[in-house]
Structure formats: structure tokens, C-alpha cells
Design a protein around this nucleic acid. Sequence first.
RNA 1: GCGCCCGUAGCUCAGUUGGAUAGAGCACCUGCCUUCUAAGCUGGUGGUCGGGGGUUCGAUUCCCUCCGGGCGCGCCA
Length: 613
Amino acid sequence: MRHQLSRNVPQNRRLRGLRKPPLSGKMPVPFNFATAIAAALQEAASVLEMDASIFAPEVRTADPRHGDFQANGVLPYAKRTQQNPRALAEKVVSALPASISAWCKVAIAGPGFLNFTLQPEALEAWLTTYNDEASLRAGAKSAQPEANQTFVVDYSAPNTAKQMHVGHLRSAVIGEAIARMLDFSGAKVIRDNHIGDWGTGFGKLIWAYKRELDAAALESDPLEEFERLYKVGNRAADDSEAVLIEARQELVKLQSGDAENLAIWRRINEVSLAAFQKIYDQLGIQFDTTLGESFYNDKVDQVYDELTKIGLAEESQGALVVFHPEHPRFKTQPFMIRKSDGAANYASTDLATLLYRREHFDADAAIYVIDSRQSDHCQQLFLTAQKWFARTGRRLPRLEHTSFGTVLGENNKPLKTRSGENIKLRDLLQEAIERAASLVAEKSASLPPEEQQHIANVVGVGSVQYADLCQNRSSDYLFSWDKMISLEGNTAAYLLYAVARIRSIFRKLERDPLDTSASDGASALATPAEINLARKLAKFPEALAGAVGPLRPHVLCLYLFELAGEFSSFYTVEKVAVEDPAVRARRLRLCARTLLLLETGLHVLGLRTLARM
RNA sequence: GCGCCCGUAGCUCAGUUGGAUAGAGCACCUGCCUUCUAAGCUGGUGGUCGGGGGUUCGAUUCCCUCCGGGCGCGCCA
């Protein structure tokens, strides 16, 4: 289903990988070797007049024992065309464009696997060419299909009048990482915080506000007080039919523009947004727009009108709903776009929002970073939008429900406090920082206290972010302080430590990592550790593509972890600050690029990095 | 009842158009600090990929079925 909805996105032009890279004075090398190999294979297939509709190169990272990349596409092609796979493989290899042999070695293995091994000179050329963030961005922009497309990323989206709690963590962290990955790939990104600022809960809250307000509490911690009032109102309405009716009247007054209720509502939102911003500041999140549900109040009538006019929406039990007769479930499970009391709900505003994104932002894609439990809603939304846009002659953006699982506690139940309350994000981040601080005090006691505090901040918050990002987002995520902050294995601290160690080398040698003259006179890569590190470095573009395409940040995390591991091995066996200037220069270049990719990668994921720890 | 997701080493997880001997981390055992940060590195133990069937040169991956777990399904968002 998602597939059909995505079809108006331009196909990834495999040839992109062959575009000319920036001039480096060295051999020209592509940004992404894997896509360049795939393009070369398709060129060979075309020379051999193979059926392009059947042949897919299937280039992927190889087991290092077999080389850097492998292409398996010859096998299925030979099977379908009833040829000897080995013989076909030989023909394909001999038809490869000459340009490719300049930078890699090709071998045929087994029944017809093609193995590609990058030449050391190619690795060196890549390291020389992509030597700062700007050149990496330029490379990504040339190779990534997302470049120059407009993406609206819808994430975080908490409800006002409540504090952000652990349930809001994943959307914020994953959404920010995705926004940054897209931005890095050359896309135009609009970060939209679609806050819930117009729910029916406001009636109850205003009811309680007018009767139970604790002025002192409002002064000292307004959000806490709003949250208390909401609970008071909710309980009262549950207990009493009369209260419920009064609360509904407060909502009607609000919606019809009553000055007093509107003022209360504004105050609530103001306070809420300020509180959210404190969390966002800690997580490095900066939205481009915050267009909540209230913004679409006056835009839902058009949705009702159009959907009714084209016969998509119908009246049912007093409500306006959409059914999808061709769908096994949605032919009977309604998509309610207007409640029987005439009020809008999130289906109405989501439809209006999508139209706004299409028309106002000219969105090519809308990415919804929302809990997987809302997959029915998203499917119905997308299906409805697809028909609506098609019948009104509008271009449908690519629509993605970038779903994620629940944050679970150690008992495998949704994470809560001992008393069963939601854990506030504020408290969670505070605890992360405190836990990191005690570790810093133990490991880095010699550093000045204010720097220790800074390190604790970066490590603590980064650990929370990274723990969330490094796992496949679609599964539930087991929250464990010990694993997160234990600083071993695939954690933020391990990566930050590698960064700090590299920075320390440059500090000791009084060199700037971005000063490329440090690697002047470098000799050729020689030792296994050097070559392994260089090979891993040159695979960054593939990791980026693998993360951005399916919007899965953990692919990038895994790459960074492996890169840091490769660096740590290198660091242990090869001293950088050696006497021989040629050896030192080539190792310094490896360090500089490792630093560049680790820092760039972590920043793309939304983490901060450190000079010392 | 209908539907979606998940099940891989003791634990937490990678493994995505079907590919080479299924990989990491933690834990456990083993070595390595007078040399650039040991929050590190090296080696090792550990698997009926939930069970069964099917598709084929080849299945953790695709299909069927069963078991187990999570979630969703008319006026909250």
C-alpha cells in the first residue's frame, strides 16, 4: 500500500553515483562507491544487451573476506534467462566500463558472485576528496535521491496543558535525526511540530481552572498546575453528568471565541510551549513551524465539503465518515472526519494539514513520526488523501508513517514510575545527566568541575538519544539505564570517547584536524589496521543512503559504532605521533577523517560531541 | 472476531528487492597500561534463526499453518 502511495517520487537514478566528484588532484572517485558499481554493472548489461527489466545489480557491502562490495545480480538473471551463471559473470566483468578498473579490482567467485575490492589509491583519493563537512554534504547531495525535494517532517507533537513524558521521547529523538539526515542529503526540510492544542480536554480543563485554580501553584510551576487541574476536571466530569455538560459548554464557548476562555487557552499554550522548548533545547531540536490543531480550525470545512462533493465521505450515525470498500477492513471500519456533534477531530485536522503541506509548503513528501499504534489511522488518512487528491487533480506527496514501538521498562511493560505515573521527560533527562555526572567524576576527576558538568550533559543526553536511535525503530525499545550509561558497547559514550581520543592526538601535536596540510607528504596506506580503517571510512555514503532511504537512523548508528571500533583497533596498534613524517602524515589523515565522519555522523543524528572526556 | 507488529546466543539487539561458514554488544573465560585518554584493545565459549510444512541451485528472509508475546479496531488524540 505504502508502495503505491510513493510512486510519484522520482526514481533513484543509479547513475547519480557516477557523477563527477569535486576535483582533488588525485584520481577521480565517486562519493558512493556502491552506487557507482551498480551503475557500471548496468552499463555493462546494456552493452551486452541484457534485459534491463530483469537485471538488478544487487550491490551490497561484502564480508571483508570477499572484498569491499559484492554484486549478486548475475545469479538470478542467469537463472531466468537459462544461462550458465559463471560464463555470464565473465561476460559482464569484461564489459565493465574501464573507469571502474581505475579504482577497484573485480573478481568472480563461486557460482557467479562478483567481488569488488577498492584499491588503496582509491581509498586515498576518497579521503583526500571528502575532507570536510561541506564536501561530504556536496557528495551526499549528488548521490542521494532525496536531494532538492521538500520534506515536511511531522514529529514530537505533544499535547499542550501536559508535560512531555517518556511517551514523547521517541518521536522527538527519531524525528529530529530523520530531519537532519534528510537535510544532510540535500533535501529541503520543514520541521513541523503539530501540537495537540485543541482537544476536547480543554473544556474540562477550563471548567476546573475557573473553580479549582491554585494561584500560588500557577505562579511557581504553571504546567504542573494545569496538569493537576486537567485531572481534577476529568475526574469531576467522570463522576457527574452535570459537570460533563458544563465542561462541554466551556468548550463550545472557547470554540465560539469567548474572550475569557480564549485567554485561558492562550495562557495554557504559551506556558506549555515554553516548557517544551526547554526539552527541545536539551535535545537540540529547533522547529521551523509549530502549527497545531487549532491552526486548522478554519480549514476543516473545505475538507468536509470536498470529500462530500466527490462522494468519498458519507453521513453515518450522525457523523461524517469515509469508508474504503475495496479494503478488507476499512470497508467497515470508518475513518471519522467529523463527529456527530459537528466538531472536528484529528482525522479532519490531519487531512486539512496534509492539504496545507501540499499547497503552502509545496511538499514532495510528508513524514509522520508517530507511534506504531496509530498505523490504522495513518493508513486510513493516506488512503483517503490518495483518493481525495486524485479526484481533485492534486499531486499527492510521498506519505510515510515512520512508526516506532513503545518504550518498555525492565519488566517489559510500558515504562512508568514505581507509582504507575508517566515519567516526565524533564526528570528522565535530569537523571541521565546525573548518572553521567557521577561517572565523569569517577573517570575524569582531573578535569575542571564546569567541564565535568558539560561532559555529563553531553554524555547523559546523548546516551538517551543514542540508545533510542541505535535500535530498529519499529520494534519496542527496552529502556535500561545500565545499558545506556554503562558506556560499553554500542553506546553514545563509546563513540564520544573515540572522538575525544582523536581530538587529544591533534591537541598533543598542536594541529587543527581540518588543516589538510597535516597530511602533506603522506606515504601510502600500508598496515592492515590503516587499510581496514580507510575501507570503513569510504563506506560512509552507503551507510547514509541505507539510513535515509528507509528513514532508519539505526543504520547510521551501526556504521558509526563500527567505524569507532575500527578506529579503536587502529589506535591500539598504530601510534600516530611517530617520528617518520610520512607515516605520521598518513595516520593523521586517517584520524582527521575518522573524526570528521564520527562528528558529522553524530551531529546528523542530533547528538553533540566533545573535545575531552 | 478482523487486522498490524514481533519471536535470531543466557540477556539486549543487527541481519530489507532470497546468496558465500547467521553477526555485534553485555555477561562469562583469556591476555594487554614506563609509549598519542584502559570509558580502550586481543583471543575464546555460546545458535534446532519459535515449531512444522511448502516454493528452489540456495530460505533468518517469500508462502501456508500452528504456538507464544505486544498493539489496534465509531465520536480521545
